[in-house]
Design a protein around this nucleic acid. Structure first.
Lengths: 169, 169
DNA sequence: TATTGTTATACTCTATAACTATA
DNA sequence: TATAGTTATAGAGTATAACAATA
């Protein structure tokens, strides 16, 4: 691997394993000084995963965020806009068009809440439940492909745990 | 529902203790069915890292991709558009405006190549080298913060290795 | 013919301000 | 006053088609 530029000295105790992977100088991928950069690697992985997702989900025409909304509303029906947006990690203002699209396709609905007439209780329609069923099969294929690449479910769990350390605070 | 989201008892990846955070059902962060999804976690981590990057790089006004270009041209001067774009993982057509901005700020230059007059040899200016020097210090701070969160450089290397398994193929 | 840089364009994702209707 | 949903808008990031100069 590429020894991130200079400073790599701190904590002399850390055993420096040499890791002799001779990364090939392929087409658009010559070895570059970014290979040891966490953000770069995470972004490249995210792009690769989302592309694979889109590829697998072509027949149900769902993007990652849309699929996530369906899953959330399936697991916890009746949530409000702000709640679902929060779980997705997007602004509530950007959730509107997302929910519009799902409603327009007849996959989800907004019901006026009885307790607070400002908010909406969000639910899947039967058609939404049916499409989610289809989508879950495609998701299994997609996710299992990733798990296989990683080396199994335990490695997957290990990766998720490491990523949580970055996200948590 | 998901079979993949089951079994979650793997031992932590690295030399780091159990960290008994009883994940609070905080503001926009109630426990949700996406927590075991690789793509979701990777995306959340990527967003968090980039936000932290932007925050640290405010005083040099460089976004991740721009900083990456400076680093690449510092390490390997004379590369062509298509080569740098390939290392960044973006289309060459989208690299043009990125390079335009760097050139307009006087940080990098395009020189006509002698061997192939279609292409440009890209170089940093002295001003670009100087700004990169400043930026590298900010980068160290940013990156060291991530490494500390992860639990050390070995854990970082472990994460990079797992992410490579996804990207490689 | 193929490739390099380029323009134009469009679509997605994200971010901010301000409005409305409720509370 | 504050909150939930909404609209409008602007900025990045990414994708495709097509063109001129050069190979």
């Amino acid at each position: 691997m590429a020894k991130t530029t200079a400073a790599r000295k701190s904590k002399a105790a850390a055993p420096r394993q040499e890791h002799t992977t001779e990364t090939p100088d392929a087409l658009g991928a010559r070895s570059n000084p970014l290979d040891g950069v966490i953000g770069y690697k995470v972004r490249r992985a995210q792009v690769a995963i989302f592309q694979d997702f889109i590829h697998h989900f072509k027949e149900v025409d769902l993007r990652p965020a849309e699929f996530s909304v369906l899953r959330i509303l399936h697991e916890t029906p009746g949530l409000k806009h702000a709640e679902v947006a929060g779980m997705l990690g997007i602004k509530r203002t950007n959730f509107v068009s997302l929910m519009d699209a799902l409603e327009k396709r007849g996959l989800a609905t907004r019901r006026k809440s009885g307790t607070d007439r400002r908010s909406h209780a969000l639910h899947l329609t039967p058609k939404g439940e049916a499409l989610l069923g289809e989508a879950m099969k495609l998701f299994e294929t997609h996710e299992n492909g990733l798990i296989r690449k990683l080396g199994g479910e335990e490695v997957r769990d290990q990766l998720l745990e490491l990523l949580s350390r970055i996200t948590e605070e």
